[in-house]
């Protein structure tokens, strides 16, 4: 049967990463990564991502990254069943680069074009790799800090950040220390060098509202502690301990609210060891199965778009090239998975 075996090229370009990956889905369940290539835009030391500069970087590397992905997969473009691209949420200029690349490939080679929500990409890939069926999902990255779960035909947000995301908190703290974004790994390294015998840890605000968390006060207080003479190590340690404990507590609340027995952690910040440790301790005490996305696929990548591409294609998100819009603020709870027929237009722009 023709559709028992689908091959998809996923193109990711929401923020600092331009990625392309070829994946295969057999019989609708056996997922296999064939190739995964990416090139990450590096912001100058002490500053964040400039959308225009990131988009310029994507334009420069896009054809090379896509060719590498296809070559490594030993796949010719006309062997693909469809091309999936991330349509949002993300930085507009960056999203447009990926959409243009996908649109061109799909039109030139006469392949189907599928619009994918980036956040669902993180989740779908996580589900495939961690082998979880219907988990509560903790999505943590530069763009998201949300606790979501699939319910009926949509994704529901059970808790999220009211202001900064976890990734932003770490990046902004890093920028304050003069590090370049993404700074999560550098903050983690600083925190691991903290020694109790040298100094006391600064106590930072612990702001949890139901299942929601707030990080802006924590960031201000952490900056202030640093200005008042606390070392980078102690501030990093306290930021991690406080911010992660908040999130773990919110996740535990959501677990108890939803009665789920599986937890999936995905997104760029999922690579943090300390956070995994804390979530692991919490899950053990509740008898919940924890699946953390492998470090290599935690950050943005083309494979996540391919992984979600299969789902979105199934749900009718096949678009004509001229209707292939991008939407900077495509919230995950606005992704409608109900309609099964292909919708002609106005799909993403609504």
């Amino acid at each position: 049967m023709k559709f028992s075996n689908l091959i998809c090229l996923g193109i990711e370009s929401t923020a600092h990463t331009f990625g392309a990956g070829v994946s295969e889905l057999e019989d609708g369940r056996d997922f296999r990564i064939i190739s995964d290539e990416k090139d990450v835009y590096k912001a100058p030391e002490g500053s964040g991502i400039h959308p225009r500069e990131a988009a310029r970087h994507h334009v420069e590397v896009c054809s090379e990254v896509i060719s590498r992905a296809l070559e490594n997969a030993k796949t010719r473009p006309n062997e693909l069943d469809f091309v999936a691209y991330s349509a949002g949420p993300g930085l507009g200029p960056c999203l447009r680069v990926g959409a243009v690349a996908a649109r061109s490939l799909a039109t030139y080679f006469g392949r189907e074009l599928v619009a994918v929500n980036h956040a669902v990409g993180h989740i779908e890939l996580g589900k495939f790799l961690a082998r979880l069926e219907n988990p509560l999902v903790l999505l943590i990255s530069g763009g998201h800090t949300a606790i979501v779960a699939n319910s009926y035909d949509s994704w529901r947000i059970y808790g999220e950040t009211l202001d900064l995301t976890l990734g932003q908190l770490l990046d902004q703290m890093g920028r304050y220390f003069g590090l370049s974004s993404p700074a999560g790994a550098k903050i983690e390294a600083l925190a691991s060098r903290f020694n109790y015998e040298d100094e006391s840890i600064p106590i930072l605000p612990y702001s949890i509202k139901g299942n929601d968390v707030s990080y802006s006060g924590l960031l201000s207080a952490a900056k202030e502690a640093f200005v008042n003479g606390k070392s980078k190590e102690s501030v990093s340690f306290s930021v991690q301990e406080t911010a992660f404990a908040l999130l773990t507590e919110a996740t535990e609340r959501a677990l108890s609210f939803t009665d789920k027995s599986e937890l999936l952690v995905t997104g760029g910040v999922a690579a943090n060891q300390r956070l995994s440790e804390m979530l692991n301790a919490m899950c053990e005490s509740r008898g919940v199965r924890l699946g953390v996305i492998p470090r290599q696929f935690a950050g943005d990548c083309g494979t996540q778009i391919a992984a979600a591409g299969f789902l979105f294609r199934d749900k009718g998100y096949v678009v004509n090239a001229k209707d292939a819009f991008v939407r900077q603020s495509w919230r995950i709870d606005l992704v409608d998975l109900e309609v099964k027929r292909p919708r002609e237009k106005g799909l993403i722009a609504n």
Binding site: I203, E241, A245, T248, E277, M278, L279, M282
Partner: peptide, 13 residues
Amino acid sequence: RKAYRNDQLDWIL
């Protein structure tokens, strides 16, 4: 006590 939380922070909270 929450095993995941830093002892000092845990006690304060």
